[in-house]
Design a protein around this nucleic acid. Structure first.
Lengths: 334, 334
DNA sequence: TGAAAGTGCGAAAACGATTTCGAGTCTTCG
DNA sequence: CGAAGACTCGAAATCGTTTTCGCACTTTCA
């Protein structure tokens, strides 16, 4: 690889001048700049990231914190889409990504970030009350969170209040009044969806018995299935069940089948996420589509903006609206 | 962060000695070594990766090349499992991972690898005839390929010959004689599966008309669906159709439904991969399960072994056997 | 006993960039 | 005409390691 010295020699200037020409310093002559830039291009020069990192403490590398309770990591149906889109966006800006784990470079996320000198970090799908995460968010490292708001920090959110609201509204319009809800663990996302749910119930004058609301975990078919079973066992069972996510909704169909319940004739169900898969399986799932690609891209762009403007102050809360996929798993009640 | 100099001062030795003590050089006294190691531990010292990288040209970083024809990247249902498992294994060995793209650090995979000074690279799910890939495999960078063998290079393979063979065998035993095949693009994996398929046909004395074998692409529901449609339109249609992968098999169920064909009563189908999802949807898909986690882990371990033993010569072809998930999408013919 | 071999350590030169500071030349203006 | 300022540029220090080489001292053995 060509180094800065090679270019210096070729242009009959000093390495300092080359560096300055390449980094846009003001004290270099106009023709010199052009000459240097030209030969750098010709020699296919790229600054050595190690050297630059050593000197400037920045790596052109973005950390990704991405752990969920079920530890499914990269295989997470929804977040893999967010991640993939963020990755593509970051690459387009010349950033590589590094997965942040608390087991490398120290004992915490922050240690790992400092160790690898990431320029910024994207935080998604974790327990935002985790003290390691809080420490990272409050650190000197620029960060953008996904689906959680910290005070005076930028984040990208899916509008979960509206999403849950619209889903209930749809069920209401289809004639459902007895609606069961199985929700995920009590994350901020869950809280928002529940608030949307309750708001809709008030607006449409639906009264939901306490026992219709059950807590499970996202992405956990076994546990969610157990909740669904309890709902089905009630003497006055719900006519529709809202699942925490598409994956568990699809996974729970085993249960209905075992009980000879047809969907949607005997029981209506809804998911959440709008995975491609939810529309590929039969009957098509009624679900709330979240724009995973949009979320990933916006988050990445925001982070790059913060990093390159060198001011952590541009705080913005970007909200992405979900939209309903009507599907075929909700029956119209007469 | 504590540097090597801080430790040198604390131990009243020179930085050189500290470095040597930490890196296991022989010319340091036994007590000196212990003293240095102890204070390094106490001061929570970690070598600066940038400095180390600059000097040694190695980054404790593993590159991942992972692009498929449909460009679904991280969202690929099967490979995300392979990847996730590889990632976990590599992290346990202290390696970070970096996705290799041809758009960063130059114009090719190799450029990017050199730019980031990755210690090794894991190559999966790409077009192995791509000249960029070939260049990378033949380069000085240690690498392990997944599902493709290069001469005198290590790789981890799923036994695709056997897998396809066993799938046909199962269909045969269930009484099927007219078996349609929709296979993926002509990668080495496809070639192996086809050879397993033909071998089984010979062994069981099944004659398959030419037109029953159709080429589609992996993971491409639209295209595969079109192939399936042609098979269904034949005057003597197959009684069973083998799909290239679970995802497209599940996706194509829209087609059967549209034609009022019940699975498996009217038509039998099989997938390939054995994704969790294939067993969560109804009816459970009959498919060949590949141990994605095992593949990822083995590949990672092999790569680490090659890197740390510093000899590229330990060539090994690790073969992972798939196993049949009988499922419920194949009908027993009378 | 003297040379050879073995031990333990440090000085210093890298690796490839960035950045400060000063120096030299040229213009400008009182 | 001389001083001040603008404009270009380079020397050198620095980031935190690794690694070579040489030096001093001790042990071994003919």
């Amino acid at each position: 690889m060509a180094t800065i010295k090679d270019i210096a020699k070729a242009c009959h200037v000093s390495p300092s001048t080359v560096s300055k020409a390449l980094n846009g310093y003001a004290d270099v002559g106009q023709q010199t700049i052009e000459r240097i830039r030209e030969t750098a291009r010709k020699m296919n020069y790229r600054p050595d990231p190690a050297a630059r990192m050593l000197k400037t403490n920045s790596s052109h590398n973005i950390g990704i914190v991405f752990e969920d309770e079920t530890m499914c990591g990269l295989t997470h149906e929804f977040f893999s889409h967010v991640l993939n889109s963020a990755k593509n966006t970051l690459e387009a800006h010349g950033y590589d990504i590094t997965f942040i784990s608390s087991k490398i470079g120290g004992n915490s996320f922050l240690d790992h970030c400092r160790y690898r000198k990431v320029d910024g970090v994207l935080i998604a799908s974790v327990d935002f009350h985790n003290e390691q995460v809080v420490e990272l968010v409050k650190s000197e490292i620029p960060n953008v969170t996904i689906d959680y708001v910290f005070d005076s920090h930028s984040c990208v959110m899916s509008d979960n209040v509206q999403g849950a609201y619209d889903l209930v509204k749809y069920l209401f319009e289809m004639g459902h009044r007895r609606i069961g809800v199985i929700h995920g663990e009590r994350t901020s996302v869950t809280v928002k969806r529940l608030s949307g749910f309750y708001k809709a119930c008030r607006d449409f004058n639906i009264t939901i018995p306490e026992k219709y609301i059950m807590e499970s975990r996202y992405h956990d078919i076994d546990r969610t299935s157990a909740c669904a079973e309890k709902l089905l066992d009630m003497e006055e069972r719900p006519t529709a069940i809202m699942f925490p996510d598409d994956y568990s909704a699809i996974g729970c169909r085993t249960l209905f089948e075992r009980r000879n319940l047809r969907i949607p004739e005997d029981i209506s169900i809804t998911g959440y996420d709008g995975l491609p898969l939810s529309q590929a399986t039969r009957p098509r799932l009624t679900t709330m589509h979240q724009d995973a690609e949009g979320i990933g891209q916006k988050a990445a762009e925001k982070l790059v903006e913060i990093i390159e403007s060198r001011q952590k102050e541009i705080v913005e809360e970007i909200i992405i609206k979900p939209n309903l996929y009507p599907g075929e798993t909700v029956r119209r009640m007469e």
